[in-house]
């Protein structure tokens, strides 16, 4: 595939041929992913269209840089949007106002910020030591401390707990020091 900016510029310039190109190259893959993950073809269509608009509006506002191939990046955005969709329907007791149907533009606008935050956290996770990364990945995916002890080879659960605590602090420091974090949290 071509340079990411070729596609992003095409989107903000409303180029039909580039939209067609993205559909041709990417839709089958997104469709397969959604259908294999509790979704239907209409969901895939919905996600795909939202992803295109999300990228366009974000690029229009801030001309961000995609560091990977456009294909990989677009697929990640679609995967995240689908994860988002699946979590919308979850009935969770949190302090966030979820559940009601948002109009499309609110939904896409929120998804832009969430994607940006996701990128920030993922990038910061890549900056910490391999060992920390390994521990935190287990921790964030709700692996019990007992299992973390076994998988990483700590002596006791207390050691595992301390290690998670330290690694998480490191990650939080990196996140909080990033200027994007400040921007994302201004209210």
């Amino acid at each position: 595939m071509k340079d990411p900016n070729y596609y992003l510029n095409g989107l903000i310039n409303n180029s039909e041929s580039i939209v067609v190109e993205i559909y041709k190259e990417m839709f089958p893959k997104v469709l397969r992913f959604v259908v294999n993950n509790k979704g239907q073809s209409l969901d895939a269509e919905d996600i795909f269209q939202k992803a295109l608009l999300q990228l366009a509006v974000r690029y229009k506002k801030e001309r961000f840089t995609v560091h990977s191939s456009f294909e990989a990046y677009f697929f990640t955005v679609c995967k995240n949007l689908w994860r988002r969709e699946l979590n919308k329907s979850k009935n969770k007791v949190t302090k966030y106002e979820l559940g009601e149907l948002k109009d499309d533009s609110t939904d896409i606008a929120m998804a832009v910020l969430e994607q940006k935050r996701w990128e920030l956290y993922k990038e910061c996770l890549e900056l910490i030591s391999d060992k920390c990364k390994q521990v935190l990945k287990l921790y964030f995916n709700k692996v019990s401390y007992a299992d973390i002890v076994n998988k990483i080879g700590y002596n006791t659960e207390t050691v595992a707990r301390q290690s998670v605590f330290k690694c998480k602090n490191k990650l939080k420091q990196l996140v909080q020091a990033d200027k994007r974090f400040v921007l994302l949290n201004k209210l």
């Binding site: 910020l113 969430e114 994302l184």
Partner: peptide
């Protein structure tokens, strides 16, 4: 954000949401 199954939502009242 970092749990593979969850998703972290922003508040729809955030000023940046309004800008987008």
């Amino acid at each position: 954000t970092l749990n593979d199954e969850e998703w972290s939502f922003v508040s729809e009242k955030s000023p940046e949401v309004e800008e987008y």
